[in-house]
Amino acid sequence: MMSNRIMRAAACAALTCSMLGVAAPASAALGGSPTTPPTGAVSTSLEPVAHVASGAASATSSTSTASYTVTQTTFSSGTVVREYVSTAGVVFGIAWSGPVMPNLPVLLGTYFSQFDSARNTLRAAHPGRGPLDIELPGLVVRSGGHMGAFGGQAYLPSALPAGVSATDIR
C-alpha cells in the first residue's frame, strides 16, 4: 500500500514530465526553413511586417515591402513561440514566452552547440542562476525568467533583413 506522500510525489513527477513533453516540439529551427507545428499546438500567421523603403519623399509616395513574416505557435502548455521568417523562407529569429521553457535544442537547431558551449563558459565564470545574455559573432540568445514565466529571443545578426533590428524580435 502506497502512502499519500509517495502517491503525491509520483503524481508530481508525472505532471512535470508531461509538462516538459508538451513544450518539447518547436515550430522552427533557427537558420532553417519553418516547419509544421506539432500536434496539439495552435499556429497562426500574424500580419506581415512592412518596413518603409528608404529614401521615400513623403507618405503618399512611399512604398513598403514586407521584409518578413511572423508565425505564432501556442502550445497546450501556454508557451508561445514566434518565428520570424525572411522573404527567402529562412528563420532568422525566434522569440518565446510562457510558463514552460521551449526545447532550445530544437529551436536553435544547428546553432545549439555554439549556444551550449557559450552558456557553459558563462555559468562556469558566473555560477548560479539568472538570465542569459549571449552574443556570439553569428548568434545572439537572450533568455530569462523563472518557473511559470520564461521568455527569450534568439536571432542571427547577419540574417536580419534590411531595416529589421533585434528589437523587432519579441
Rank of each mutant, 00 (worst) to 15 (best):
S117C: 12
C12W: 15
S143R: 08
A95V: 12
T36D: 07
A24L: 15
S54L: 06
S117H: 14
A95S: 07
S45C: 10
V90E: 10
V80A: 03
R142G: 06
S143W: 02
T35I: 03
L108Q: 03
T16P: 05
V85Y: 15
P48Y: 03
T39P: 04
S97E: 12
R5I: 15
S165R: 14
A26I: 06
P105N: 14
M147Y: 14
V100M: 01
F112E: 06
L15A: 02
G93A: 00
F75K: 02
P25N: 10
G98Y: 09
L122W: 14
T121C: 07
R142T: 00
H126A: 14
S43V: 11
A26R: 07
G31A: 01
T16S: 04
A24E: 11
N120P: 04
G98K: 10
A26K: 00
A26N: 03
T63I: 12
V49P: 00
G40N: 09
S76M: 13
L160C: 08
G21F: 13
L107C: 03
T87L: 12
E47M: 06
A11R: 10
V106R: 10
P48L: 05
L104A: 06
A13P: 02
T71D: 01
Y155C: 00
T69Y: 06
N4E: 11
P161V: 10
A125R: 10
F92K: 02
G148P: 13
V106D: 09
G93I: 05
R8G: 12
Y84E: 10
S76L: 11
P137F: 03
A13S: 11
S18T: 11
F75M: 07
G89A: 03
F112N: 01
A154K: 01
G21P: 09
T167M: 15
W96E: 01
S117G: 13
P131N: 08
A56G: 06
F115Q: 02
G40L: 00
L15N: 08
S113A: 12
M7D: 13
P25Q: 13
P99M: 05
G21K: 13
A53G: 15
P99Q: 07
V91D: 00
A149V: 05
Y84T: 03
S61V: 13
I134N: 05
G31S: 06
A29G: 06
P25W: 08
G163K: 04
G31N: 07
A14V: 13
V70G: 03
G148W: 06
G145P: 00
N103T: 06
T73V: 14
T36S: 04
G40R: 10
V49E: 08
E83N: 07
A9Q: 11
A88W: 09
A66L: 04
S76E: 14
A29Q: 02
S165Y: 13
A159Y: 00
A11P: 09
G138C: 03
I169F: 03
S27L: 12
T121N: 13
G145S: 02
T74V: 09
L30K: 04
G21N: 11
Y111P: 03
N120W: 11
D116R: 11
P105F: 01
L156Y: 04
R5W: 14
T16L: 08
D133N: 13
I6E: 08
